[in-house]
Design a protein around this nucleic acid. Structure first.
Length: 196
DNA sequence: AAAATACACAACCGCGCGAGC
DNA sequence: CGCTCGCGCGGTTGTGTATTT
């Protein structure tokens, strides 16, 4: 979109994808599968970089990708996940089957960022229920973010073992997120020497 | 009706990580 | 052990569209 139909010195096309290009990529992947993104475009007859093809496939052409507006439930999941994981969009995306990290990231920046995690705290925190106070009070808490990186693997693993087909309810997902909070809390209880 | 502004989203870029040599 | 390559991720940008003035 940046440079519609533009071309670089490398001869690789950039910018928006044409229907023809989409068709080529889809039919190639359907026929031969994904084996090597950097070599694939040549065989698929595309003047695109492998990276470009991968991005297009992952964010737009891949089967089962959900398009259109986010539901209230999805929104909730994003807010919850973001409060836990921060800007780890790919991790958040694993909780929303059919949604891509890019889509979630865009949605966050355009719809949810304004509300921010502060709002989430206000929305979810029950004064009588301290268990909901896990939402970050400070988005810029980089140390916390850094530490959270270590637990994300656990979280993602758990997510993949939790049944998560398209029909899974948001409440079950959110409750699994809340279980993750326990994991996180335990992690902090144990502590990580040398890291502050 | 036209211009200005805000919003939404596809796509690009750079970086880091892991695997293979 | 160090280097190269490919992949994936997150931040950011640019353009089309909608809304407001």
């Amino acid at each position: 979109m940046r440079t519609p139909n533009g071309e670089m010195n490398t001869g690789l096309k950039k910018g928006s994808w044409s229907l023809e290009e989409d068709k080529k990529l889809v039919s190639y992947v359907n026929r031969y599968g994904i084996w090597n993104w950097s070599h694939m475009p040549k065989y698929a007859g595309l003047s695109r970089s492998g990276k470009n093809c991968r991005l297009r496939w992952m964010n737009y052409l891949k089967p089962n990708i959900k398009r259109g507006k986010f539901s209230k439930e999805e929104e909730e999941i994003i807010l919850h996940s973001h409060s836990l994981l921060g800007n780890r969009w790919s991790a958040i995306a694993t909780r929303l089957p059919g949604r891509t990290d890019n889509e979630i990231k865009n949605y966050w920046h355009t719809h949810l960022k304004k509300r921010g995690s502060h709002n989430l705290v206000h929305e979810t925190t029950n004064p009588n229920d301290s268990s909901t106070s896990y939402a970050f009070q400070d988005n810029d808490n980089k140390n916390t973010q850094h530490q959270l990186n270590h637990v994300t693997d656990i979280i993602v693993t758990q997510s993949s073992t939790t049944s998560e087909d398209d029909n899974s309810s948001s409440t079950s997902i959110i409750s699994s997120i809340e279980q993750e909070v326990d994991i996180k809390d335990n992690y902090y209880d144990i502590g990580s020497p040398g890291t502050v």
